[in-house]
């Protein structure tokens, strides 16, 4: 277990506001490259992509960890396959306005997914459904709920929690909870 974390069997919820309600027929996921090109998927198109079922440990900055959670979704490697970019950074955007920033390399090479199932059932809205980002090697706020897109950029732009005092990178093993850690 990473330092300062404790184990939970529950699935606590951390969100800054209400849970958004997103109709699937209007849902879309967009990757925008630094030169303005956009790559779009509708809900049905997302479901048609090859899926993986990662089993991972998750660590929330509010101190709980949950081990061996199982998810189903699409690897970012698949979504990024045809995207041409030289960007180093990514800013994930969510329905409801939430954002979080990550180095692009933390989204690639089997480290991140867009997931739509949790423990064999469709992902509940309060846990980020219909689809959320899953980046389990970083604190869980980086796994943006209700994800709607990823903006690729050459500079690092702070996301929502990052701009109110949470750490820019958020590695649980180095206990990077707050700015300056």
């Amino acid at each position: 277990m990473p330092p300062g974390q404790y184990l939970t069997e529950d699935f606590p919820v951390l969100s800054a506001g209400p849970t958004p309600n997103i109709p699937l027929d209007r849902w879309e996921f967009v990757i925008a490259s630094e030169d303005g090109r956009e790559y779009r998927w509708t809900w049905d198109e997302l479901l048609e992509l090859p899926a993986e079922e990662p089993t991972v440990d998750i660590h929330c900055v509010t101190k709980w960890s949950k081990l061996e959670t199982t998810w189903r979704g699409v690897s970012l490697d698949v979504l990024m396959e045809d995207v041409e970019t030289t960007a180093d950074f990514a800013l994930a955007h969510s329905y409801g306005g939430y954002t979080t920033n990550l180095p692009l390399e933390d989204l690639l090479d089997g480290k991140a997914w867009i997931v739509y199932e949790f423990e064999g059932s469709e992902l509940a809205p309060q846990h980020g459904g219909p689809a959320r980002l899953l980046v389990p090697h970083l604190y869980f706020w980086k796994s943006a709920k209700w994800v709607r897109g990823i903006q690729l950029q050459e500079f690092d732009e702070l996301g929502f929690w990052e701009s109110v005092g949470y750490h820019d990178y958020g590695d649980p093993w180095r206990e990077q909870r707050y700015q300056g850690d």
């Binding site: 529950d10 606590p12 919820v13 951390l14 969100s15 800054a16 506001g17 209400p18 849970t19 409801g96």
Partner: peptide, 29 residues
């Protein structure tokens, strides 16, 4: 508690409050 916050925040949205003006803190199970 999480369930309380979920319910109240959703109800406020349903009453017409702008979600961007609703700030939440969820304490736990």
């Amino acid at each position: 508690p999480t369930g309380f916050v979920e319910k109240v925040a959703n109800t406020l949205v349903g009453l017409g409050h702008d979600p961007r003006r609703i700030r939440t803190e969820r304490f736990g199970p």
